[in-house]
Amino acid sequence: MFPSMKVIIAFIVGAVVIAGLEFVVEGGSLLYSMLFFVAVSQGPIAVAAAADIAGGQWIRPYKQTLFTTRHMILFVLILFAVFLGLGRVHLYEWTHWEHPGQWLNVPFFSLRNLVMLGISWVLANVYVKASLTESKTKNMWALFWLFSYVITQTLVAFDWVMSLEYPWISTLFGAYFFVEAFYCGLAFAAIYTGFRYQHLLETHSGTFKKAMMDMMTMFFGFSIFWGYQFFSQYIVIWYGNIPEEVSFFTRRLDVFGSLLYLIPLILFVIPFWILISRKMKANPKVVMAVGFLVWGGVLLERVFMLGIHMALPPVISAVEFIVASAVFFWVVKSQDDDALVASGEATPT
């Protein structure tokens, strides 16, 4: 269950390149990449764990692939260590306080986030093993993993993003993040469907179309749920109109203007209207496009989240993101291939 040599090498190369880039330019590029990959690494496993607990059959064709993202949690952990090591934590205003808070202080911040990422990676591995071997304790580990998932995502929301805005608080923020990560996980399944449709159809003949329809129905359902969460947060803040609270939106409106409306459009309106049709849900190319769209929406949202607090040098951010994406792709692909070899469905090339 431990990452293979190929994966470890990818991690080292990736981390070294990114650390090197970070030396060149200051800014939030690394935090930006981490914020995206913490969602797409944990989300897919959360989808599988939830399906395991609920006894959903539709997860079968996807399970193994969803599990491949688990080692990316370790990579995010490494990136977070780089982030700390390079002193990027000083992007947070509260690190400059004369009297550090009991919650917001550098040692505790570093420790709790490192520990939670570590725990969630370990639990992911334990759960994955239990699930693939259909062990009796599968559901218990799925539950434990989901606990760690919820806590990690909540910490990411509150520590990585919300603490930038202290004393602004939104109690929904944590839930918003773990729902969004789940949504990213479903998008991952959609993207995978697009890439490997023929293969999935052949290996799971007879059951795959139904499983895909169910998976995409979930994807559709989560587009609604995402919209619901977004609206729930927006309307409370809009209605209350308390200066220090509504500044979360007004400051961003000042900088990004009506570009902000792209977020609900990309993450809710477009996926909703596309996926409402049964025909579209059954079309692998369409769902792949929607999957990429959702990922793009999440990426854009991260720009808006961080952009007003720190410099996001476009070139370096893009390069770092591409490097991390390459690692992600490598991790998923190499493990997916390994799994195929192990199950005798393909021969090593």
Binding site: Y234, I235, Y239
Partner: peptide
């Protein structure tokens, strides 16, 4: 009412 614009779309969405 409530210092809100006449067409308050978030409220009317409900």
């Amino acid at each position: 009412t409530g210092g809100k614009p006449f067409f308050s779309w978030p409220a009317y969405t409900v």
